[in-house]
Amino acid sequence: MAIIKAKNLGYEYFRRDKEGAVEGIVKALDDINLNIKQGDFVAILGHNGSGKSTLAKHMNAILYPSEGTIWVDGKDTQDAGNMWDIRQTTGMVFQNPDNQIIGTVVEEDVGFGPENMGVETKEIWERVKESLKIVGMYSYRKNAPSKLSGGQKQRVAIAGVVAMHPKCIVLDEPTAMLDPVGRREVIRAVRALNDVENITVILITHYMEEVIYANKVYVMDRGNIVMEGTPREVFSHVEELAKIRLSVPQATKLAYELKKAGVPLPDGILSAEEFTEALCRLL
């Protein structure tokens, strides 16, 4: 069953000048159709301003469509009575690790969501323990979040969402402000959620290396979905991606350049390991 389904979804807002007068209409999303199944690992790629964050906010009933419909777990987000159910079903993790931590101790932050949902005290503790263990932050439960690294803070934020027992987690550029080590930590935690807990993951990013674990990739540009498919399929279109100035992983790029020079390598190589094997087969 579809956990998130969008049909002809559109979102517009007024652009205003300094005095607040309406200058024009901006179409942030245009005729988006999505069908994301329970347990999927979906990646959404695109530049800033391509509409990917706007789309993410529709999945959590923070923004509502101006055209079309979006259903989360079969519920129409525009129905006001569904709002809290929807926010519980799809959790959100945002970009800036400092701006989404509410508690002053790690465990208190993770407990914030369940507290809001009215979960019993005893169960909150169980959920906090279990979610911190999933992201590998249990030993830091008594620490102050301000003393943690960026990657650790993001893992705490993820645990905070997991503790709400969502069916789906939307991560809006969770690694954009992290160093490579932090990025690896977060992606590892996200993959564990998907593999072990079978939570649907929607990862919004512009780091190509993070996309290769997804089973479906959507590429967005100017409010539209311009490409969709498996990472292998999407990354076979090096030139189209270059046109909207998105790059591909380095191994893919190397393979693409060699193909241009006449080497018969297969399409859609994603990693250094795959490249090496493919090249060895040619020898």
Binding site: M92, F94, Q100, I102, G113, M164
Partner: peptide, 13 residues
């Protein structure tokens, strides 16, 4: 602004 959004997304009311 970010924090308010994050709190709302975590069902704060």
């Amino acid at each position: 602004n970010d924090l308010a959004l994050a709190m709302e997304a975590r069902c704060y009311r």
